[in-house]
């Protein structure tokens, strides 16, 4: 009984929070996550009610455009050492050329936030984990830097920090000797914002990237994903990725 009441209470609070955030969003006019029913307050734990996902329309991806990459680097403080082989890259633009037809597509490649992530399977300490809302993260407190996850990831989405870092962003801790990858800008998602890359893509008027809750049938991304044909990269592995691509 009490449990039921508690639940009721938590739903009510979440609803009110949602209203509040919605109001703020309308006032600020920034890019907010569509489907606010799942936006949470600071003290609430994430649940599997949401599964965050991304839908990328590669046909809108401007040639030579690198805005998503720049935004990610800026947001997460990924300043390199001009050492391309060892500098971290959370998102990169990929040129894909069909060997037979010569057709070229460019698209952003990032952690695909799989439902069955190989990186999580292989991690010996459980530092590589999947949050209840589907975001795949590295818990850098328990990462021992074995790099097995990098061996296992089919998307080459992860980077190892090869040297000492300074001037990290307070919301994106990262340091030498641990592995990291795209976090879906989890600090932004938790406060109801879309990831920096998505925001930047929208500001660049490309609007190629859409972010939202795949579990909410009324969310913009769920509606769009249902309407148009999209695919997973390496769908043959059956990992059920949260990042889907149109136009490839």
């Amino acid at each position: 009984m009490t449990e039921g009441l508690d639940n009721l209470d938590s739903y009510r609070r979440r609803f009110l929070t949602a209203l509040g955030i919605g109001g703020v969003a309308a006032a600020i006019g920034g890019v907010r996550i569509v489907g606010l029913a799942t936006a949470k307050s600071d003290d609430e734990a994430v649940t599997d009610e949401a599964r965050w996902g991304m839908l990328i329309d590669t046909s809108k991806c401007g040639e030579g455009c690198n805005r998503c990459v720049e935004a990610c680097n800026e947001e997460n403080g990924l300043t390199g050492f001009d050492r391309q082989q060892t500098d971290a890259q959370w998102i990169r633009t990929l040129e894909v050329r069909d060997k037979q037809t010569g057709h070229v597509t460019s698209l952003p490649m990032l952690c695909q936030h799989c439902e069955h992530p190989p990186c999580v399977d292989v991690c010996p300490t459980g530092a590589s984990f999947r949050r209840a809302d589907g975001i795949v993260l590295v818990n850098k407190h328990t990462c021992i830097g074995c790099r097995y996850c990098m061996m296992a990831c089919p998307y080459k989405a992860r980077s190892f920090i090869h040297e000492e870092l300074t001037d990290q962003k307070p919301w994106a801790p990262r340091g030498k000797g641990t592995v990291e990858s795209c976090t879906f800008c989890v600090h932004r998602v938790d406060r109801g914002d879309a990831p920096a890359c998505v925001e930047a893509c929208g500001e660049a008027a490309n609007g190629a990237m859409m972010f939202g809750n795949l579990n909410d049938p009324d969310s913009e991304i769920a509606i769009r994903a249902k309407q148009v044909s999209s695919r997973q990269i390496r769908a043959d592995l059956n990992l059920n990725t949260a990042v889907r691509y149109e136009g490839i």
Binding site: R92, L94, R97, D98, M109, Y155
Partner: peptide, 19 residues
């Protein structure tokens, strides 16, 4: 490991990340 991973079988990929 030196041999690149096949992200798009049948296609050629290139990037800043040695794809």
């Amino acid at each position: 490991q030196a041999y690149p991973m096949s992200l798009f079988p049948g296609k050629q990929v290139s990037s800043s990340f040695y794809d």
